[in-house]
Design a protein around this nucleic acid. Structure first.
Lengths: 233, 233
DNA sequence: TCAAAAGTGTTCAAGTTACACCCATGT
DNA sequence: ACATGGGTGTAACTTGAACACTTTTGA
């Protein structure tokens, strides 16, 4: 009779657990990734995702939230677990298993200041440098997840200010999918979803005519989700 | 200037890392979950998923594979990472973060012997008992994942012997979705995918006429995947 | 008055769903 | 000969894709 290795707690100092965050933003019509220069040896000074070791008394999700808040000042943003990376030699410094989270952020002036403080930096998707360890792989997976997610969940909004125009939203999706999207079909679908609240204001920053501003109806979305609603762009 | 907590390796004996496996099977026209009685305190003797602490010198995926092989004897089966659970007090015995994997297995006689050895047990989806810790939540998430996956990947095969009939495959999908599926449309789609290899043999165990046996064309599937192929049931 | 972006409907093709009967064979 | 499960095609409908012009307004 074969025995499974006993599920015992008699293990000590096994390995370290870290969280790393793939943080996406959207500026100047482009999707961006937030990276910074690693502070600890080995590989100090090289580009890296933002993360740290998980403390014993904090939940992993909590750790991810804190990392994100520390660097961006942002609190209530889209943040979800992506995947855990745990090969033995992924980190030459120690045996570290990393649980990766991905986040979508809206850029605000305040946030930019915080980011600059940390010497972090936004880079365009097609200019992502080599990152330490397996971080490039993490980013690749996160980008795939972003595209997959965008297909059936309304996440374009997460990358825009709370008030946005339809042309802006369209551009976000075009940036995500890297292709032109028919604007008439796009409007139809978006408006048909019933998840947009049209405001009585126009944004005239990009045209003389001005485009109507909308808000995303989060309450209604939650309600629809419970009813098994399926969104598709 | 705010400082991110330093990403240093100077932490010790932080927490333990475990893998747990949600193992699905298919028998008697029903989807089943493999559970066993927990061996260690606290909560010894209660129903639990199968898992153990990850050793320092093994990759997390490797650990999951070993757990699965130890209990079922199965080696090359569908096994993917599901999610990591890491709230502080999820385990009253210690601070344990659990990385959960899910697996689809084909039942074989040999496997059943191994499973019996371990006093593990298959239970139907609608008879899943209360499990220890957050294991019921893990199972719930795995079932959702299974349904999501089945929509766009040919995974029905993973639950059947390597040779199977179309009526059998249909029943697997009906079990996954818990609803009747039109057999004509199902056949059309399956055969149109080009991923089934028709054999010259019939299985007469369930009817006098007998149903043709098929094999799943894994090579072709891999090829199609690379070309951005998208399967849908 | 004109340049530049915002806004609006219809047609066609493709894919999905619904549906009913004959076939083969062991007992 | 009959009961049982295996196998097959078509029509209606729904969905997604393609496509071009008018509107508004600041400069």
């Amino acid at each position: 009779m074969v025995k499974v290795p006993p599920n015992t707690y008699a293990h000590e100092n096994q390995l370290l657990l870290a969280v790393d965050c793939v943080i996406f933003g959207y500026q100047d019509g482009e999707l961006k990734l937030l990276i910074f220069k690693r502070e600890v040896e080995p590989l100090a000074g090289q580009w890296s995702l933002i993360g740290r070791i998980v403390e014993k008394n904090e939940a992993i999700e909590e750790a991810a939230h804190k990392v994100l808040k520390d660097i961006t000042g942002l609190d209530k943003v889209f943040l979800e677990q992506l995947y855990s990376f745990g090969s033995v030699s992924r980190d030459p410094g120690a045996r570290v298993v990393s649980i990766v989270y991905w986040s979508l952020t809206q850029s605000t002036a305040n946030q930019e200041i915080k980011i600059a403080d940390h010497e972090a930096q936004w880079v365009s998707f097609n200019e992502i440098p080599q990152l330490v360890l397996d971080h490039n792989q993490m980013v690749k997976m996160a980008i795939e997840k972003l595209r997959e997610y965008a297909r059936y969940r309304p996440i374009g909004f997460e990358l825009l200010p709370s008030q946005f125009t339809l042309p802006q939203l369209l551009k976000v999706y075009e940036a995500i999918y890297q292709r032109k999207i028919d604007d008439r079909n796009f409007r139809k679908k978006m408006l048909a979803s019933g998840l947009l609240i049209k405001l009585d204001k126009k944004d005239k920053s990009t045209s003389k005519k001005g485009a109507f501003l909308y808000k995303f109806d989060r309450k209604k979305y939650k309600l629809l989700l419970q009813q098994g609603y399926w969104f598709e762009v």
